[in-house]
């Protein structure tokens, strides 16, 4: 474990708590893409189900359980408790266009052609694109509540911090995970535009608004 990864994971944890806080305090899931959240459930369940047969560490186990549970809980909040506050008419990204190509990529690029390894690859590819429905929604509405932008910033920081972690591990352990690195670079790049607006507006105390 190095600091980049630790802070990356903590940032990921923070993003979940920010999202839960946003839903609770505003009693609404307005501005949150249900499709993105549903993709995260698929990502975490397919990747972290290995807790059933693989023991890595207590840290690893607790985090995996937390991410599976919290993503399912958020989906429950959106679908049941705060259902009326979710407007499907602006959450229109076509998810099937992501899942198909990701499944194909997972079949081609994996470390072993077994069910669990292909599933792992699929979860990595899917995670890298899972934020797209959310960013698409942001683009459509052109603005976001400040708390929602903090959620996205924490989520983006999580994957961004994994990049120095991989560089560090390459030099200290001599290991590279090309699938995770490639997907991670793509995922971080998707946030570039968001981060630019976030740092030039929200951090300066202004409202997050995209130029028309």
């Amino acid at each position: 474990m190095n600091l980049f990864r630790l802070f990356g994971d903590l940032s990921h944890l923070a993003s979940i708590f920010i999202l839960l806080h946003k839903i609770r305090t505003t009693r609404s899931c307005r501005g949150i893409s249900f499709k993105t959240q549903a993709l995260y459930v698929a990502v975490f369940v397919s990747r972290y189900l290995d807790i059933l047969w693989e023991w890595v560490s207590l840290y690893n186990f607790v985090m995996k359980v937390f991410f599976i549970a919290s993503s399912c809980f958020i989906l429950y909040l959106m679908k049941m408790k705060y259902r009326p506050t979710h407007d499907p008419s602006i959450d229109t990204f076509r998810v099937e266009f992501l899942v198909g190509p990701c499944a194909l990529l997972a079949l081609i690029f994996n470390y072993k052609f077994t069910f669990t390894e292909v599933l792992w690859s699929l979860s990595i590819f899917l995670e890298s694109l899972a934020i797209l429905p959310q960013l698409f929604m942001l683009q459509r509405t052109g603005e976001a509540e400040t708390i929602t932008t903090h959620y996205l910033a924490a989520l983006g920081a999580y994957r961004a911090l994994y990049i120095p972690n991989w560089i560090y591990r390459y030099f200290s352990e001599g290991v590279v995970d090309p699938i995770a690195v490639t997907a991670g670079l793509v995922q971080t790049a998707l946030y570039a535009d968001f981060f630019y607006v976030y740092f030039t507006t929200v951090i300066q105390g202004q409202k997050f608004e995209l130029p028309a």
């Binding site: 474990m1 990864r5 994971d9 990921h12 972290y48 693989e54 890595v56 560490s57 690893n60 985090m63 995996k64 991410f67 470390y111 792992w120 994994y162 591990r169 001599g174 290991v175 590279v176 995970d177 090309p178 699938i179 995770a180």
Partner: peptide, 10 residues
């Protein structure tokens, strides 16, 4: 084998 997945990463 230097190319493999890191089982400890989340």
């Amino acid at each position: 084998e230097t190319l493999h997945r890191q089982k400890d990463e989340l």
